[in-house]
């Protein structure tokens, strides 16, 4: 199966390596970064492409871009792994629309388009007999979407709640373990590359809220937007507050919850027993799924990382290929 990929950053490189190193039956035929691109219908030599990217910062030829790739006949599935824009979703949203309109299936790790425009993208895909999959947008490597749609098929999901942001979880873990102040823990997270230079989206709970919007729309077919989420971040949490909780074998974690029956869509720091399965260490993510038949299921895993996120993208690719064949 021929793959075109937009974006060759941390996630894109992870995907390229996985295609190169594992015998997945996938062929990378087009790739673009912010300044260049290449289209090779017979298959790109991934090792030398990655080497060129490393050396020059460009994966291909300047002047070749996403538009050229999208308009080409060189791919069956588009992987969209360019940067997130939570306000407009662009340019990724346009790329995804373009591919779907051409009947090409899309796999993305980009939260922006899926959170902003799920309904219409979903319709567009349906209309053109294509798939849109986005496992990597929520909880990185954790197969939350696959679990809900296949593993728990037939169950009514009554509640979803969990730790959706590794940066916040890291900061809270360090404040609890070492008694660091919020500022010290944030600084440490930045030094380790767990927090962006501008950590607003993470620490204010917005990133977690975007993931809730995606889940609400995808799992329950709601039509929610970011404005529907009640959001409190962790930037006001003090070390003393965590100490008060820890006195009783409890701690504080940033928890996102969706409870459809009560119309709850909320991200907030919460007091939680240390023995609770959602109390995971450092940058891990965890999500609990409440169902009527299966009871409660908790998934724990890495919420970010190059290969970890690539894993979720690859699983979507193979799902489209293996479970449903190529639609043409």
């Amino acid at each position: 199966m021929r793959i075109a990929m937009l974006g060759l950053g941390s996630v894109g490189k992870g995907i390229a390596r996985a295609i190169l190193e594992q015998d997945l039956g996938l062929s990378l035929t087009a790739v673009a970064d912010s300044k260049s691109g290449r289209i090779e219908p017979s298959g790109i030599d991934i090792a030398s492409m990655l080497e060129q990217k490393e050396r020059t910062g460009m994966c291909g030829t300047p002047g070749v871009g996403a538009a050229d790739i999208l308009a080409s006949d060189a791919y069956d599935i588009l992987i969209e792994v360019s940067p997130t824009n939570a306000e407009t979703g662009e340019p990724a949203l346009g790329y995804i629309r373009e591919a779907l309109s051409r009947g090409m299936s899309v796999v993305t790790s980009n939260k922006g388009p899926v959170a902003l425009d799920y309904q219409s993208l979903h319709l567009l895909a349906k209309e053109h007999g294509a798939y849109l999959r986005y496992e990597a947008t929520v909880c990185g490597a954790i197969p939350i979407m696959h679990t809900i749609e296949s593993g728990l098929a037939g169950n009514t999901i009554t509640k979803l709640y969990g730790v959706f942001n590794g940066t916040c979880n890291y900061i809270l873990t360090r404040m609890a373990e070492e008694g660091l102040t919020y500022q010290q823990a944030l600084l440490e997270a930045r030094e380790l590359g767990y927090a962006e230079a501008d950590p607003t989206y993470d620490v204010k709970g917005i990133d977690a809220a975007i993931k809730l919007v995606i889940l609400a729309n995808a799992v329950w077919g709601m039509e929610k937007t970011l404005d529907d989420v009640e959001i409190t971040g962790i930037d006001g949490v003090t070390t003393a507050a965590i100490a008060l909780a820890e006195e009783q074998d409890l701690t504080i974690r940033l928890i996102g919850e969706i409870i459809p029956a009560e119309d709850v869509l909320r991200v907030s720091p919460r007091i939680i027993p240390k023995s609770h399965p959602l109390v995971v260490e450092e940058t891990l993510n965890a999500v609990a799924i409440d169902t009527e038949m299966a009871g409660e299921i908790t998934l724990i895993g890495k919420g970010a990382g190059s290969l970890e996120t690539a894993s979720a993208v690859i699983s979507d690719l193979l799902f489209i290929r293996d479970c449903h064949g190529r639609r043409s």
């Binding site: 509640k159 709640y161 409190t232 006001g236 949490v237 507050a241 909780a245 409890l250 504080i252 928890i255 907030s268 720091p269 919460r270 007091i271 939680i272 609770h276 959602l278 609990a288 409440d290 409660e296």
Partner: peptide, 10 residues
Amino acid sequence: FLIIEPLEDV
């Protein structure tokens, strides 16, 4: 103020 509430038991 910021209020931090306990996560209800399920």
